[in-house]
């Protein structure tokens, strides 16, 4: 296991029903989705000119899994400052800025955050892992 002797591993996991993402990609819900995904993330979830609910569900699951690393109960998911760089055929990478970076620091995150996502049937599942200062 990597990390210093004063670090402990922490994981976050999340599952998103793809049918809920189908609801979010409807044009009348675009304002809500645009709050949860950055423009470049929406572009990465677009296939042949249409938003792919499965990809959207995966991105949302990754963000929520990462947020769980922060152990915050009274803060909403900082959707915009938690950036997922990924797309079809690429391993997703997470970048934090603004509020997400502050929450990560407060939680004692001291290594890169690794994420993985999978889709099967009606669900997208994501796991995030990092080392936390003990």
């Amino acid at each position: 296991m990597s990390g210093s002797s004063s670090s402990v591993p922490r994981v976050g996991v999340d599952i998103v029903l793809i049918s809920r993402a189908e609801d979010l990609v409807r044009p009348e819900r675009r304002q809500v989705l645009s709050h949860m995904l950055r423009p470049e993330e929406i572009a990465a979830c677009t296939r042949q000119g249409r938003l792919d609910p499965s990809a959207v569900a995966g991105f949302l699951a990754i963000k929520e899994a990462v947020f769980k690393l922060f152990h915050q109960r009274n803060r909403p998911v900082p959707w915009q400052s938690l950036q997922v760089d990924g797309g079809a055929g690429r391993w997703p990478v997470v970048r934090l800025d603004g509020m997400s970076a502050e929450l990560a620091q407060a939680a004692g995150v001291e290594s890169e955050i690794s994420v993985s996502v999978t889709h099967d049937g009606a669900y997208a599942v994501a796991v995030a892992a990092t080392m936390i200062r003990s």
């Binding site: 809920r20 979010l24 304002q31 809500v32 949860m36 949302l60 909403p76 959707w79």
Partner: peptide, 10 residues
């Protein structure tokens, strides 16, 4: 929940 939270705040 977290997915309906944004719409709820709106």
């Amino acid at each position: 929940d977290s997915l309906s939270f944004v719409e709820f705040v709106f």
